[in-house]
Every structure is written in structure tokens, then in C-alpha cells.
Design a protein around this nucleic acid. Structure first.
Length: 791
DNA sequence: CATAACCGGGG
DNA sequence: GTGTACGGTTATG
């Protein structure tokens, strides 16, 4: 039906123009393209022309144009709008073009207004099944088959990072007093307001703008750029009357685009927007962090400092200042704030280079701007544009969205086979299960009669294997390896969302097909069940199976080679494209509930999964207890578990634990006024703690640590600095019996499944009431309890 | 007490 | 002239 070259063009586009780093398209079809020469790095600015286009489900709305409308191939001299009827059964079958998008838009809206007998002001009002109207830059990329970054490496981009230091979080109340800027060569400069008030702040913004224009970057980056720095800067510049000329063309001032993850637009509360600077790409590293954690699920927080530390990007001397203390610190120790601000932009640059690869790689495939691909979701953000381009390139009509026929969507399988403690645990899982099933059983959307989605998935998986192999062959740490790994990660993202694209409910995606999606999950459940049966037949003890992976325990005499062999045996029984892999092995596991377990690695590392074992609100002393108790439990040391429990109670009773360790972290969501209004009806611990500690003022969103005092009142725990010292001394007046109960009822219970009821009572018996008849701790063995059926 | 709505971050 | 999911928390009936 289609050949290899066609499929290549579906995936990569067809115009080889190298080095596009950004572009800006106007209504009249003029496009400014900025390219970097892949050899010299030199920046070229070119002006191109294209015909803006729309795909419609009918020509009716354009018939009023008379002679000014004509069919492609039979040109009429003064035709302003040209149409072409596309092949195939799709409902969206008229590709209409004009010299100017405004001409096209106005003509369609006029016709639609007449036809419907009501004013139609935007194409969007016609609904997604009457018109496909993309942003102009995407129209250009789809029409030309061009893509960003061909033949360019990530390091050839000119990237600049800037970070604002402000007196607070509110652009209405607060000001910018410092900006750190890292230019594309890596030099960091700290700009500061020379004094207080409007004039110095305005001058600071002017210097920032001048600095950016002089450095002339292709890309501007920061962490939470779109959520904080740009909106703050925009607001301050506007109220100070400073022109914000950050773009490369057009009048000063930032433009806006709609974006799901954007900020709330000023004029209305519904839509969300992000800023755009023509001629530059505005990249927020928080998007890359989210995308990374979406698969990895290991980040403690999405904050810059936490992520930089986690990824090993933070220097050993990294200056840290609590957010609310930055401005006050600036008065007493300005150099410290300068070091802090400099470290921020350095970390952003490193973070972007580490996690920004996938968006860069995607830009070479998907016909959208780099900055849009950085925050786009994979289904509607990447797969849909690829499908639209492929259909139009093939001259084929696109289907309308299909309303649900009421078929419910069925999900994955989840089995819990046993709870309690198991030893010698192995995890085996299928790499990219759903895409593999789609490929094996040729499951694609019914209305995709060109077979584009499956062809894309096939090509992407092949590309990924190539990229992975090339990455392994390249020297560790090299730019080449980095590029291949980024490509592999980007492809994984798209491939894994192919199923999500099928399953998207509510008519979100053009080719969504719940029947096909259900066939994928049915095959998935079948595959998982088959894997479990086959493993059990080979003598392992099944523990938990979820969607595409199985945890199981092996007999004591087995070696790692035996473990790998049993996985390979079962893998050989599966279809060739469905690849079961040996994912890891662990010394022990506590299986608590579905998706809730603790794993002890052979190297001693403890891995906790699920809400039962990690919660941001949990009191630190309880978390610490749980970790230590689990380490002893999984190492087979039951007396050690008891000792940790007794030590914790002892530390509580002796008040050796700092107050901060027993306090729980809460976020204040009501203003002082709002809380006082409802206080008589319902008392809430966090606010009572604030008032009780004499803190009458706070902002919504403030986070504090609160605890219960020995008199039963609520109090705010004193904040500690980085060294753990409190400024005013630590009262340690917490309610010991209360926190003993909490330890037993909230934390110790998470080890309940590890013991028989009698043994559990012994291990966590009250130290004051130890029974003479209890069995000695040394004889207690953790248990593993099978769960019949497994659901 | 259940379900819906909201948040994640930035100074 | 858009559109992740997910897991956790808080508001609301």
C-alpha cells in the first residue's frame, strides 16, 4: 500500500532544509526562518512564502466567493481562494488555500454566518469536525515537510538562561531586585537594581532586555519560566512602562499562545496562555522534568534544586537560601544571594542539556515548534500532528472525530498473589507491551485506512533500536551518545502513547478507537496471565503482577543464572515482538497491598513504592522509623525491628527528637480572614497552630510544620536552617502519648502483613506491658501469605 | 464520608 | 488559532 520512502516522509517530513532553529509565520504567508549552518554555526535569516491553508468538511461556506474561488489545476486569473478535494472516505476533505490567512478565514466565517444564521466569529466555533485550522507556523511546517534542527546538534543551539530574584511571589506587591543571566558562551552576569523603587527596577529590566538582545540566543530557558519569570517580568515591565523587546522581529512586547499548562489569561478565567517571543524559543525546564518523571517516577520534587541534586548537576558548594529569606539575606549578605542566583542559571543550563534532548529530537519529526513540543502531550501534541501531515501529504481526507458508541474502555490486569515477606525476588517485564501488541496483532484505528499509525509505530520502534545501539557504541558522556539517548527517549515517549491515542475518550483524538484500544488491553491481560502461568509452572512463587510486569520469588537453591534462564524460557514462548526482559533482582520484598511494596536490593538499598510507604505529609520520625524497621525486617532481623520500635518510643519519651521531626507538613489554603470567619463552626489544626503560636498573618500557599503539644493544643514547629539548627531554641513540648499512638497506628501497621497476628502483637507490644508468655523474638519468622485468586 | 476539583513550581 | 497522566491533597455535597 505504501513504500519505505513514504513512511520515512510520514515520520521525518520530506524537505531536507538543515539547521532551522526557529521560525515565525504571518497571516500573509510570509515566514521568517532562522537557520544555523550545521558546519559553521552561523545564523541565517531567510524569508519564505507559503499559502496558508485550512481543511473543511464542505465547500458551501466559500461558494459566495463566486469566481474568486477555484479548483486547483484550473486556475482562474483572480481567484483568491483555491480548493482541492482530497481522496478517501474522510469527512474533512476540502483543502483550501489563499495568499493570506485573513482572506481565507474571513471568507469561511462569512459563509458560515450566512449558512447557520448566527454570527460565527472564529473557525473554532464550527467545531473540530468542520475545520482543521492549525497555527500558522504549523501550517507552514505541514505544507513544506520541513522540520526543526535537521543536521544540528543540541549544543549548536545558542541557549541563554535568566532567573529573576524578587522580593516576593506577587508581581502586584513585589519587585525584581536581581537577575542572573547566563549567556550562550557560559558566562554568568548578575544584574542588580541600584536602589529601591520604580526607576532602579525599570533600569534593571532595560539592562536585561539589552543583554538578551546582545547575546541574541535562539532559545531562552529557565525553571518555571512560563509559570513565574515571564509572567512576573511581563507584569513589572508593563506597570513600569518598559518595552519588553525580547523577540527578534516585530514590535516589542510578548505575544501569547494557548497552552494547557499555561497561566490563567488576565482577561478571562477559562483559557490558559503562554508567552511567545517571535524569533526565539522559550523553554521551561520544568516541562522536561515532568516528562522525565512521567516514566521514571523517582523525583522527590520538581523544584530546581531537588532535581539538580538528584541528577548530580549541583556543585558541592551550591549556595541555598530559603525562598522567603532571599530578599532579607540580600540586605545582610548580598554576595551570598549573587552566588545563589548564579547557581540557579548554571543548574538550569545543565538541566536543560540533560533532560531537554527528547523535545529537541521530537522537533526533527513532528511539524510543530520546538517550544510547543517541549510542553506538548504525546497523543494530541505529537501523534495527531504526524497523522494530519501524513494524510495531507498523501492527498487523503481526514476523518472527523467519532462520538463514543457507549462501549466502555477496559483496562489492564492487576493481580496480588501473596502478601508479606518474600526472599530472592525477581522482576520481569515486557518492554513497551502495548505498542508491541499493536504491532504483533496489527491493531490500529479502524478509520486509519492508510495505516499510518501502525506504520509510524513500526518505524519508530526500529529507529529506537538503531538509536539505542548507536548510543551504546558512542563513547560514554559524549555529545553523540547524548543525542542517541535523547532520540531513544523521545521515541519511547511517542510509541508508548500510541495506545493512549487509541484509548483517548471524549473524542479527543481524530483516530481514537475504543474497540481497538480494548483489543490491545485484552491481549495485554492475556499476555500477563500467560506469563504468570508459565512462570508458576517453572517453580517460582508469584507475588504481584501489574499490566506488563511480574514480581516473583525463586527457590533458595537458585542462582542468578537460574533466574535469568526462567525469564528467558518464558520469553521464548511469547510472540517475537513481545519481549519479556529480566528487569531486576532483590534480596527481599514486603508485599503490602496492590501497588504498595518495599524492596531490599542486594546492595542494601531500600526501595519504597505506593502511598502506604511514601507520603509528603507524613511526620519525619515515622518515615525514619518505617525505613529502619523495613531494613531490619527484610534482612530477617526481627529483634532489630523491635529494637527500632522501642528506640523510637524511647526517643519520644525522652524528648530527644527535635520538634520538626514529629511535625507534619501542611499547606495553608485559607487566608487569616477566611479562617476566622469559619473558626467558630470548625477548628482546623494548622490554623489553630498559627494563631496559637502568635502568627496572625500568613499567605495562602505558605507551608508550615504543625504538631500537637503536651496540653493538646496545636503549634507551629520552629523552622530549621540548612544545618538543622533553630534560631530560637526548640521547645520539644510535643504530646508524647499522641505520637506513640501515631507510631503504632499509622506506621507500625504497615508491617502487619509481615507477621501472624500473634507475632505482630509481640513485635509491637507496648514496652510497659510486655507479656511473659510471648514467644522470644528470635524465634519469630516473617510470613508470606498467599491470596487465593489473585485479585 | 464519598466524590469532585485541584495541584505539582517560582521568591 | 488547546488538550498527558498520575498520585496525592483539599473542597464540597
Amino acid at each position: 500500500m505504501h513504500n519505505e520512502r513514504t513512511e520515512d516522509e510520514w515520520l521525518w517530513g520530506w524537505d531536507p532544509t538543515p539547521g532551522i532553529v526557529t521560525l515565525w509565520a504571518e497571516d500573509d504567508g510570509r515566514v521568517t526562518v532562522w537557520r544555523r549552518d550545521p558546519r559553521t554555526g552561523e545564523l541565517l535569516r531567510e524569508t519564505e512564502r507559503f499559502r496558508p491553508w485550512v481543511v473543511l468538511d464542505r465547500l458551501d461556506d466559500l461558494l459566495h466567493l463566486g469566481d474568486a474561488l477555484c479548483c486547483e489545476g484550473e486556475p482562474i486569473a483572480n481567484a483568491r481562494v483555491v480548493y482541492r478535494e482530497l481522496d478517501g472516505p474522510g469527512a474533512l476533505r476540502y483543502l483550501v488555500t489563499a495568499d493570506n490567512y485573513k482572506t481565507l478565514n474571513t471568507a469561511i466565517l462569512r459563509g458560515a454566518t450566512e449558512r447557520l444564521g448566527r454570527p460565527v466569529a472564529t473557525l473554532r466555533e464550527l467545531g473540530p469536525d468542520a475545520a482543521i485550522a492549525l497555527p500558522l507556523d504549523e501550517q507552514y511546517l505541514v505544507a513544506t515537510g520541513r522540520n526543526y534542527f535537521r543536521d544540528l546538534t543540541f549544543d549548536q543551539l545558542r541557549r541563554l538562561q535568566f532567573d529573576l530574584e524578587t522580593t516576593g511571589l506577587s508581581p502586584e506587591r513585589d519587585r525584581i531586585f536581581m537577575v542572573s543571566v547566563r549567556d550562550p558562551s557560559g558566562t554568568v552576569e548578575i544584574l542588580e537594581a541600584q536602589g529601591r523603587g520604580d526607576a532602579p527596577e525599570a533600569e534593571l529590566i532595560r539592562r536585561l532586555v539589552a543583554k538578551i538582545r546582545e547575546a541574541d540566543p535562539d532559545v531562552i530557558e529557565n525553571h518555571n519560566l512560563h509559570g513565574f519569570d515571564l509572567p512576573f517580568l511581563h507584569r513589572r515591565a508593563r506597570s513600569l512602562g518598559v518595552p519588553l523587546a525580547l523577540g527578534r522581529i516585530g514590535p516589542p512586547g510578548l505575544r501569547r499562545r494557548a497552552a494547557r499548562r499555561g497561566m490563567v489569561a488576565e482577561d478571562d478565567t477559562e483559557r490558559r496562555v503562554r508567552f511567545v517571543a517571535p524569533g526565539r524559543e522559550l523553554i521551561d525546564t520544568i516541562d522536561a522534568v515532568r516528562r522525565y518523571d512521567y516514566t521514571v517516577r523517582a523525583l522527590p520534587s520538581y523544584g530546581l534544586k531537588a532535581v539538580a541534586r538528584y541528577l548530580g548537576l549541583a556543585g558541592p558548594e551550591r549556595e541555598l537560601i530559603r525562598g522567603d529569606l532571599i530578599y532579607t539575606t540580600y540586605h545582610t549578605d548580598p554576595d551570598r544571594v549573587r552566588r545563589y542566583a548564579a547557581a540557579d542559571v548554571e543548574e538550569v543550563a545543565a538541566l536543560s542539556r540533560t533532560l531537554g534532548g527528547p523535545a529537541f529530537a521530537l522537533s526533527r519529526m513532528v511539524p510543530r515548534r520546538y517550544e510547543r513540543l517541549a510542553d506538548a502531550g504525546p497523543a494530541t501534541g505529537m501523534i495527531d500532528p504526524l497523522l494530519v501531515r501524513a494524510y495531507l501529504h498523501a492527498g487523503n481526507a481526514l476523518p472527523a472525530h467519532q462520538a463514543s458508541d457507549g462501549t466502555p474502555h477496559s483496562g489492564a490486569a492487576l493481580h496480588l498473589f501473596a502478601t508479606g515477606v518474600a526472599h530472592r525476588v525477581v522482576k520481569a517485564d515486557v518492554a513497551s507491551l502495548y505498542p508491541s501488541l499493536m504491532r504483533t496483532y496489527r491493531i490500529g484505528p479502524a478509520r486509519d485506512h492508510l495505516g499510518v499509525l501502525l506504520a509510524l509505530v513500526d518505524r519508530l520502534v526500529e529507529q529506537r533500536l538503531t538509536a539505542k545501539a548507536a548510543g551504546r557504541a558512542a563513547p560514554s558522556g559524549s555529545a553523540e551518545r547524548h543525542a542517541h539517548e535523547a532520540m531513544s527517549a523521545a521515541i519511547k515517549l511517542v510509541v508508548n502513547s500510541a495506545y493512549g491515542y487509541l484509548a483517548a475518550g471524549g473524542g479527543l483524538t481524530r483516530f481514537a478507537d475504543v474497540h481497538a484500544a480494548n483489543e490491545v488491553t485484552r491481549r495485554g491481560r492475556e499476555t500477563l496471565d500467560f506469563m504468570c502461568r508459565s512462570l508458576a509452572e517453572r517453580g517460582v512463587t508469584l507475588l504481584e503482577a501489574d499490566t506488563d510486569g511480574v514480581y516473583f520469588a525463586v527457590p533458595p537453591v537458585w542462582t542468578e543464572a537460574d533466574e535469568r534462564r526462567v525469564v528467558a524460557d518464558v520469553a521464548s514462548l511469547l510472540p517475537p515482538l513481545v519481549q519479556l526482559e529480566f528487569e531486576g533482582r532483590y534480596a527481599a520484598m514486603l508485599s503490602h497491598e496492590p501497588k504498595n511494596y518495599a524492596l531490599l536490593g542486594y546492595d542494601g538499598t531500600l526501595l519504597l513504592r505506593g502511598v502506604a510507604f511514601r507520603s509528603s505529609r507524613a511526620e519525619p520520625y515515622g518515615e525514619t522509623f518505617l525505613r529502619h524497621a523495613l531494613e531490619h525486617l527484610l534482612a530477617g532481623d526481627v529483634p532489630g525491628v523491635r529494637a527500632v520500635y522501642l528506640d523510637t518510643i524511647d526517643a519520644l519519651r525522652r524528648r530527644e527528637l527535635p520538634t520538626i521531626k514529629i511535625a507534619s507538613r501542611v499547606r495553608l489554603t485559607k487566608t487569616p480572614e477566611r479562617y476566622r470567619a469559619t473558626r467558630e463552626n470548625r477548628r482546623e489544626l494548622p490554623y489553630e497552630a498559627m494563631l496559637g503560636s502568635g502568627r496572625e498573618h500568613w499567605h495562602v500557599g505558605d507551608k508550615v510544620r504543625v504538631y500537637r503539644t503536651r496540653t493538646g493544643q496545636a503549634a507551629v514547629a520552629p523552622e530549621v536552617d540548612e544545618e538543622g539548627a533553630t534560631a530560637l531554641g526548640d521547645p520539644r513540648d510535643y504530646d508524647v502519648p499522641h505520637y506513640e499512638r501515631l507510631l503504632r497506628d499509622n506506621f507500625a501497621v504497615r508491617l502487619q502483613r509481615a507477621f501472624t497476628p500473634g507475632d505482630y502483637a509481640t513485635v509491637f507490644a507496648d514496652p510497659d506491658q510486655a507479656s511473659l508468655f510471648a514467644p522470644p523474638l528470635e524465634t519469630i519468622r516473617p510470613v508470606l501469605t498467599p491470596r487465593g485468586g489473585g485479585d
